[in-house]
């Protein structure tokens, strides 16, 4: 009996564009094992972002079931979803999405503030920044950091609440190949040490190759699952 951190059943997302129905996701069944690193690939328009949004609890499916770390989230209300995102999901975006006016430390602390935790926020944030190799850049603002460093801050922010999953949407897409490789290295090493499940959406076959499993999407359907060795 495996330990699924993510399990979806017949997940559907349909956008109604006037007369036309766009089936962005058309019956997706996937299971993701706790502690694994999985990549999602597929051509443009195949439904990768839509799936990311659903798995990350940013959006609700039109139909189907989704169980995240033991919680049925498909029909939750906005504020319940916000709470699940806060506790169970860490996000890493292609464009980093840091608050440019605030220090690396404040950015990393932010999820803790919304969690209502007041104890040791600063210590935890410094710890997370140290874990991504930025222990000496705590008070820098995003504008004072390189792209690779900014993505490290974002990864520290994703880690801070000790989430069940980290969703990374093209995490290396805005980086040069060297920093991109370093970020992948960091993500994989964090997976080893922290046992956090990581899901990466990517175009880059090199990135996908480094993950344990590749889920291929096309026209809103899963068309193949490859296990890497």
């Amino acid at each position: 009996m495996s330990d699924w951190v993510i399990e979806t059943k017949d997940l559907r997302k349909i956008y109604q564009m006037g007369e036309i129905e766009v089936r962005a996701l058309d019956g997706v069944d996937i299971q993701i094992e706790r502690g694994s690193v999985v990549s999602i690939m597929g051509p443009s328009g195949s439904g990768k972002s839509t799936l990311m949004n659903l798995l990350g609890c940013l959006d609700r499916p039109t139909a189907g079931e989704y169980i995240l770390d033991g919680e049925r989230v498909a029909k939750m209300k906005d504020d319940q979803l916000a709470d699940v995102r806060n506790r169970k999901v860490g996000f890493v975006f292609q464009s980093f999405n840091l608050l440019s006016r605030q220090s690396a430390l404040s950015n990393v602390e932010l999820p803790l503030r919304y969690a209502g935790a007041s104890k040791n926020r600063r210590e935890k944030a410094i710890e997370a920044l140290t874990a991504v190799g930025l222990g000496d850049r705590v008070d820098h603002r995003p504008t004072e950091l390189s792209g690779g460093q900014q993505q490290r801050v974002a990864i520290a922010r994703a880690l801070i609440n000790d989430p069940a999953i980290i969703m990374a949407d093209e995490p290396t897409g805005n980086l040069d190949s060297k920093s991109g490789a370093e970020i992948m290295e960091l993500i994989l090493s964090l997976n080893k040490t922290l046992k956090t499940t990581i899901i990466i959406v990517t175009h880059d076959a090199n990135v996908a190759k480094q993950t344990q499993r590749i889920i291929r999407l096309k026209d809103g359907k899963v068309v193949g699952v490859e296990e890497n060795l």
Partner: peptide, 16 residues
Amino acid sequence: TREIGLRKAIGARKKD
């Protein structure tokens, strides 16, 4: 708007 989206993604509720 983007900042608001990010805050929501990391757990801000409507009230926040």
